[in-house]
Computed example of a mutant assay.
Amino acid sequence: MFNHQNKRINQSGFTLIELVVVIIIIGILAATAAPKLINISSEANVAVLKSMGGAVLSGAKSVYTKSLIAGVQDQQKTTIDLNGDGVDDVEVSYGYPSASRGNGISKIMASNFVTEWTWSTTYGDTRFWLTTASLGGRSGQYVNQTAVLASGCYILYDPALAPGDSPSISYITTDC
């Protein structure tokens, strides 16, 4: 005869109810944390733009100092030699880098500009748009402003328009 009282069954693991409770708790935690992580991403994009904007203005001021030394700060458009090699490096407008995509503000950007940024200019190079390559969907290339504007997260560089003026940076952060 088989005796059921002498045999003990050891059970290990989780019951279905315990697993469901854990999954619900993890879901609640994820729903609480997700908006904070999304907000951090947005804040990081804005910080990158502001950092780049500060670097652009700092570089523009350095170019202006060279323009003062060369005595061309009152000229509407000219080019100047930045490194003393006898070759004009950057186009300036009233002493500051112009908005030219080929010879202006893009010439003073850091070496990572080619791979990490997407940019555009208006016809006549009156304004320069700049966004990160990840937001603009392209890296290291000039594009029409549609890709930059579509990002909703970009910098506008407006060059100096008259003697004594300074360039300005505007930050568009609606969709960062």
Rank of each mutant, 00 (worst) to 15 (best):
C176K: 02
V63G: 00
F14T: 03
K36Y: 13
I69T: 13
F128H: 01
H4V: 10
D85I: 08
D175E: 13
K36H: 12
K66N: 09
T32M: 12
R127H: 11
G59E: 10
V72P: 00
Q145R: 14
S168A: 11
R127S: 09
D81M: 02
V92Y: 08
S120M: 05
T146A: 08
V87N: 08
F2L: 14
L149C: 03
A44Y: 11
G95P: 01
T115D: 13
M52W: 12
G137K: 00
M52C: 09
N83Y: 07
A147Y: 10
F113R: 02
G71M: 05
I28P: 03
I24F: 15
T146I: 02
N103W: 10
S134T: 14
L49G: 05
G152R: 00
S100E: 05
Y154I: 00
W129P: 01
N83L: 05
S170A: 10
H4G: 11
N144E: 07
N3W: 06
D74P: 01
S67L: 04
W129V: 04
R8K: 13
G152P: 00
V87R: 07
N39S: 13
S62W: 07
Y142S: 10
N10I: 13
N112D: 14
L82R: 04
V22M: 13
P35C: 03
I155R: 00
Y123Q: 14
A110W: 07
T131C: 01
A160V: 06
N144T: 10
I26H: 02
Y94I: 11
G140R: 03
G95A: 07
S106Y: 06
G84E: 03
G13Y: 06
G102I: 10
T79R: 04
I9F: 11
N10H: 10
L29H: 06
